[in-house]
Design a protein around this nucleic acid. Structure first.
Lengths: 107, 107
DNA sequence: CGTGTAAGGAATTCTGACACG
DNA sequence: CGTGTAAGGAATTCTGACACG
């Protein structure tokens, strides 16, 4: 875990390729960004750049939309998930701190 | 091993991004292709698409060229490495065949 | 040999807007 | 609300060639 996420999370894919990979239209992809569901980076020239993780997320989003879920609902779900993940991470980091301070002591 | 090479080997990165990631010029990137050191795919429109593996390979190539190695020498090295890798793979597959036929038998 | 560059064209992407519903 | 589309412009990419050495 946490190994080589570098490929999955690096934003290097332009929208045309994302279109091919997801089957979505550029209109849809840009709209989901407008609705704060996806956050591509930009090149100097202003072109959007996506990661593989973004592509997977887009496919999840598309599936939910087909099921009639609205974008704001999807955003709410994502915020909840994010909060849960953050809490988990905080817990882990505190644990790491404790281990660093006391974990190695043999006495 | 052989798990999630999907991200690393998928050709989805356009040449402008490769330029940013490698620090090479487009001219250099295209030239190394001309010299058969790298093999991008193409979009329908004809634009080159590279993988993360290609990017790493390009950086290796660039390093060798800086060291004065010529492209045809680099190609020869790569061919040798490929042959070795192929031989290894063949051996593995034959072993797999044998295991499939006899490996599971308990009698 | 490896790389820079100017040239002209084609493919790509961007934004804001109108449309439907 | 989510998506299609035409519009005009800007950024991207392509190829073949000349140049240097």
């Amino acid at each position: 875990m946490s190994k080589e996420a570098s490929y999955k999370d690096k934003k290097v894919i332009t929208i045309g390729i994302v279109r091919e990979l997801t089957g979505l239209t550029e209109r849809q992809i840009r709209y989901y960004e407008e609705r704060k569901l996806i956050f591509p980076e930009r090149t100097n020239g202003g072109s959007r750049k996506y990661s593989f993780a973004d592509i997977e997320l887009l496919m999840d989003i598309a599936e939910k939309i087909e099921d009639g879920v609205q974008t704001f609902e999807i955003r709410q779900e994502m915020m909840k998930e994010k909060k849960a993940a953050d809490a988990k991470l905080r817990k882990k980091m505190i644990q790491g701190q404790l281990n660093a301070q006391f974990g190695m002591r043999r006495i």
